[in-house]
């Protein structure tokens, strides 16, 4: 697939209806505005921490729309706000997490924000040490294959997950966990997709100090896995390569490593200051290539989006984020007794 160009794959996105394209745009916009609000809340001193996905929205929404959202397994990482919103986590859920309030669905407000989990939507719980989710996602994919081969599920049952998707940053591919997960995926030809969201920096450390190869995707051949590099700021290009990877997984053809090149438009987290390690010109240039503006231009050119519709979307997104914030601010904190719950599952 490395040899394939986006043009050759574009028949996938060419089939997307105007309605679906607008839905993709909606989730990108929703993620961006929710993310911006989180930064604002942090600067206002209302929340303790935020970790941002700004600049990664095209990759994540392109990926989400290529899988069976809420059915296929997803083991995300902390930048996957847009991915998780597109799968079904709501701005309200995210705001409850930011404020650490009762009713927070991923962890009962035990985890820091952006440590996603939603079992009914098949989003696996993730931790903070990076790449730990990769071999676990291989385990999810192993289970899919196992259940099919041992007759535990009907292969035509649409309610059953048919692949496991996991995401991480390029810096995290330095971890042994990533290697071991990729190796299982290759050895067992698992229905597994790994998206490396390559934004060139692991907090402050540039990619040159993480790896001696110029593209993460080059590493795929070492695992007997297909590798492809895609422009992660082009939502339709990501969708196209993801659809090809999804077909491979569904058809039992094995795992795919997708390197989506994008740019982190913000510091690593609310506690970081990227001025110490990134030139401002570089950041400004990336902002001009903002994936949301890019998709917006595309949709406007095709007449799918209009200025009036854009304003309507902005207004609806704002309402949604406002409502979520209000709800979370007014929600109570968890009961102290909840500290002691869920240590062991009892049968």
């Amino acid at each position: 697939m490395t040899a394939l160009t986006n043009t050759q794959l574009s028949h996938f996105s060419a089939q997307l209806s105007a309605e679906t394209l607008l839905e993709m745009y909606w989730y990108m916009l929703l993620a961006r505005r929710t993310d911006e609000r989180a930064w604002l809340l942090h600067r206002q001193g209302k929340i303790a921490f935020h970790i941002s996905g700004m600049g990664h929205e095209a990759t994540q929404v392109g990926a989400a729309f290529a899988i069976q959202r809420g059915v296929d397994y997803v083991a995300p990482y902390y930048r996957d706000l847009a991915l998780c919103l597109a799968i079904g986590i709501t701005p309200r859920d995210f705001m409850l997490s930011l404020f650490g309030k009762a009713g927070e669905i991923t962890s009962k407000a035990r985890q820091m924000p952006s440590h996603w989990s939603h079992k009914p939507l098949h989003i696996l719980s993730t931790s903070s040490p990076v790449a730990t989710q990769v071999p676990q996602a291989a385990g999810l994919a192993f289970a899919i294959k196992y259940k099919r081969e041992n007759g535990l599920i009907d292969p035509n049952d649409a309610s059953q997950p048919r692949l496991a998707l996991t995401c991480l940053g390029e810096g995290s591919t330095s971890q042994g966990e990533w290697h071991e997960g990729m190796n299982w995926a290759g050895v067992h030809k698992l229905p597994f997709i790994c998206i490396v969201q390559n934004n060139n920096y692991a907090i402050s450390v540039p990619i040159e100090q993480q790896m001696a190869v110029s593209h993460v995707a080059e590493r795929a051949s070492a695992y007997g896995v297909l590798g492809v590099t895609v422009d992660g700021t082009d939502v339709l290009a990501v969708y196209d390569v993801m659809r090809a990877a999804v077909e491979r997984a569904y058809n039992g053809e094995g795992a795919t490593l997708i390197e989506a090149k994008c740019y982190r438009l913000t510091p690593h987290s609310s506690d970081d200051d990227d001025r110490t390690y990134r030139p401002r010109e570089e950041v400004e240039e990336a902002k001009r290539a903002d994936p949301i503006l890019r998709f917006e231009r595309h949709l406007l050119e095709r007449g799918i989006l209009t200025e009036a519709l854009k304003q309507e979307y902005e207004q609806r997104v704002r309402q949604s984020v406002d409502e979520a914030q209000r709800y979370a601010e007014n929600a109570p904190y968890p009961e102290e007794s909840s500290l002691y719950e869920d240590v062991y599952m009892t049968t």
């Binding site: 730990t132 071999p135 676990q136 385990g139 999810l140 192993f142 259940k147 997960g181 190796n183």
Partner: peptide, 12 residues
């Protein structure tokens, strides 16, 4: 990976 595959498979 033996343990991690086990975790993923158990979750599934």
């Amino acid at each position: 990976s033996i343990v991690a595959i086990g975790i993923g498979a158990a979750c599934a």
